[in-house]
Amino acid sequence: MALSPHTTQSGFTLPSIHSFPPFFTKQVNLATQATVTEHWTKLILSYARHKRLFTIRVEDAQKAGNDWDEILRNERINRSLPPSHLSYILNDMVSKNLAMYDPPKQTGSVLLYWRSPEEWAETLYDWVSSSGQLNTIMTFLDITDPPVQTPLSGLPLTILRRAIGVLQKTNRAQMIAITEGEGVRFFGGR
């Protein structure tokens, strides 16, 4: 089989390295493994962005039929990423601040930063500004589950809190306790 990009059923284009059998095994040579890990990291983050996935678990490499099958398995070459290799990759991503363990104090599940908290902060602020909601109080639910789909729809609360934290440091937002739970007020000016 020739090494060439492949488009999945969801329309995602897998890089040609995804057709290279050793890509799916942990490499003994540290430099080679670092390169493989870097390719897997880019692949995981770009696929997560494509499908709007926020979480990946080590068990996703074990069980077929999940959101990650298109990249964790390659039926064309009869390969799949072993859970131990995925765990190694996720640990590397956490160490480089490209993901975070969620829930904390475990290593089997991570939240992915296919946008950094700083990028989410700018996306959030731009959306609030363009929708005319500066200087109003919004609940977290207003932001992550609005009646009309937005770039923030479905955003995990952990990432939302981090994005708000970024905005707080620049005096563009303030967290507020409200009867409906948690809320935030956004201020004008950059």
Score class of each variant (00 low, 15 high):
R172D: 02
L14P: 04
R190Y: 12
L30G: 12
N91I: 08
T25G: 05
L160R: 01
W127Y: 06
L134E: 01
V28P: 04
V28W: 13
N66S: 03
F20E: 06
Y88F: 03
E180F: 12
I176W: 04
K51P: 06
I143M: 06
A99K: 02
I143A: 07
F20S: 01
F187N: 14
P147L: 03
P83G: 03
H39G: 07
L81R: 02
Q27H: 13
T35N: 09
P147F: 01
G181N: 07
R57K: 12
E70N: 09
L157K: 10
P103S: 08
H85C: 03
S4L: 12
P82T: 09
L98Y: 06
S84I: 14
I164Q: 00
Q27Y: 08
R190P: 07
M93I: 05
Y47N: 05
L3M: 10
I137Q: 04
T37G: 05
T179Y: 14
V94E: 02
P151W: 04
L124W: 02
S19D: 13
T123S: 07
R172K: 07
Q62M: 12
G154P: 09
R115W: 15
S109A: 05
Y101V: 02
S80N: 10
D126K: 15
F54Y: 14
L14Q: 04
S80V: 08
L53D: 02
I143R: 03
